[in-house]
Write a protein that binds this DNA or RNA. Structure first.
Length: 456
RNA sequence: GUGGUUGUAGCUCAGUUGGUUAGAGCGCCUGAUUGUGGUUCAGGAGGUCGUCGGUUCGAGACCGAUCUUCCACCCCA
């Protein structure tokens, strides 16, 4: 019985045009990564569960795809655990591997395992798919690509500065103007939490603050109260909700709030350093913006936090994010290894470029010229020319069948092939080629050298 | 994980309070046109109405389950 085929929720097939466009983005990002001195690595699609579990918080653990053990995995589970029917508990007994959830944690694992062979500071980039057991939405998939660039082994803030430039360079090259690079610092968030006496509730506090532009001031305050933050503490936050003005004036308002917090002051210093450098160096098309409410859920960030949003008017979640993590490799037994990195969301960038019509027209063209097939002797004659064209870097192809001219022309049309060459007895006897421009409908009879020069 | 939404031809969609043989536009195929595609004209092929079950004399339409789509949460690229 033939069943209707389907693919799993949140996954997609990519047709030739889509792959070509995706490669265009990949290549652009890769070029810039390499220009900035990053080197490529790849890691496996799945890791041992213990490598991933517990690194992304409880929510993260829920969204990790677990891989069932091979063989008769249930027989090894003891009856007590089995009868409890507690999925979370049972999982560790029947699943020892999981699909990677991001590229940063596998990278940390890689650094620890290869620490003796790595020359630090190590700048690596990685462009591979990741998987999340999320409910799909616009710009949210269960399989998607991340393009990460990270530096480990340097605490220098110049790395942060360069990463901001890298964001700007990539989006500028993609002609995606007016992106906003939002920046914050985890130390500022901890500082604020300290000042309001909620250091132990840092996560709850930042998660609530992060929602400010979405649900508004009142609801954020309610959520904080709900999470056990005192009213007195929330009152101290008041200036935060009305923070305004440019980078400098926001910073000076923050200084007032954080005057009693050493950590907070450190965070402000870092921010000022990055802002001063970027102001001096300038950005092409992006804009660096301080956003105190920027939290980002990942619990390993310790310093700067980045998030990039698409130009205003495009309804899309962040198209990139990153930050500094002082101790990512600590959990794998390698302390004091500071890293900072950024990530590009390929699939979302694709959607944004598509929505704004920013893919260059030339991206979708794959073949330069198609030779019409009039028979075997003509085909052989054509293939000689095609060989020369290919040697000159021109994409050329012979229609494989001696089909009706109409069919062959239509084929060229549908594939958006800009030129067609007709070779029949007339041309063969004169050693020429009839070149037809499919867009304008004009055609001319040319020699082989003229033919080649047409495409140069 | 929570709440909502969607599914009819390859695509975009009609389809009345349940009632003969489920339609349109576009696309596709063939011909007008044996060395010329797009335009035009003529003809043609595509659907067990997402799937399974139920109500009914009768279901594309009503009910349930399930899958899928999209959206809002949660969280995030």
């Amino acid at each position: 019985m033939a069943q209707k085929p389907s693919i799993p929720k949140g996954t997609r097939d990519f047709n030739p045009e889509q792959v070509t466009k995706r490669n265009y983005i990949f290549n652009t990002i890769q070029n810039q990564f390499e220009k900035f001195g990053f080197q490529p690595i790849e890691t496996p699609s799945f890791e041992n569960s213990e490598t991933l579990m517990g690194k992304y918080g409880d929510e993260g653990d829920r969204l990790i795809f677990k891989i069932l053990n091979s063989g008769d995995y249930l027989s090894k589970v003891n009856d007590g655990i089995y009868n409890e029917k507690d999925s979370n508990k049972l999982t560790s007994f029947i699943s020892e591997k999981a699909l990677r959830y991001d590229l940063t944690v596998p990278f940390a694992r890689y650094v620890v395992q290869n620490q003796n062979d790595i020359e630090f500071p190590f700048k690596r980039y990685q462009m591979q798919p990741v998987w999340r057991a999320d409910r799909p939405q616009k710009g949210r998939f269960r399989e998607f690509y991340q393009c990460d660039a990270d530096v480990v082994g340097s605490t220098s803030l110049w790395q942060e500065v360069e990463l901001v430039q890298l964001y700007d360079a990539v989006f500028t090259t993609l002609c995606l103007k007016d992106t906003t690079i939002k920046i914050n610092n985890r130390k500022i968030l901890s500082g604020i939490a300290e000042v309001i006496g909620a250091s132990d509730k840092l996560i709850d506090f930042t998660v609530a603050l992060d929602k400010l532009d979405k649900i508004g001031e009142e609801k954020v305050k309610l959520e904080m109260l709900d999470k056990g933050i005192s009213q007195a503490g929330i009152d101290k936050l008041q200036p935060l909700f009305t923070l305004s003005g440019d980078f400098g004036s926001q910073v000076s308002q923050l200084k007032d709030i954080l005057s009693n917090s050493e950590e907070g002051k450190k965070g402000i210093e870092e921010l000022e350093f990055i802002d001063a450098a970027i102001s001096e160096l300038g950005l092409e098309t992006a804009q660096l913006q301080l956003d105190v409410t920027l939290a980002r859920g990942l619990n390993y960030y310790t310093g700067a936090i980045f998030e990039v949003s698409a130009p205003a008017g495009v309804k899309m979640g962040s198209i990139g994010g990153g930050g500094r993590y002082d101790d990512l490799t600590g959990i794998f037994g390698m302390p004091n290894m500071s890293g900072v990195g950024i990530s590009f969301g390929l699939d979302r960038i694709y959607l944004v470029l598509e929505e704004l019509g920013l893919f260059p027209e030339t991206v979708s063209k794959t073949l330069d010229v198609l030779f019409i097939n009039f028979g075997d002797s003509e085909a052989l004659y054509s293939l000689k020319a095609i060989k020369s064209l290919r040697e000159n870097g021109i994409n050329a192809e012979l229609y494989p069948e001696n089909a009706k001219m109409k069919k062959q022309m239509q084929h060229a049309n549908k594939r958006n092939i800009p030129y067609v060459v007709l070779v029949g007895e007339q041309e063969m006897s004169k050693s020429t080629y009839t070149l037809k421009n499919m867009l304008k409908g004009e055609q001319s009879e040319v020699s082989l050298t003229e033919l080649i020069s047409q495409f140069k």
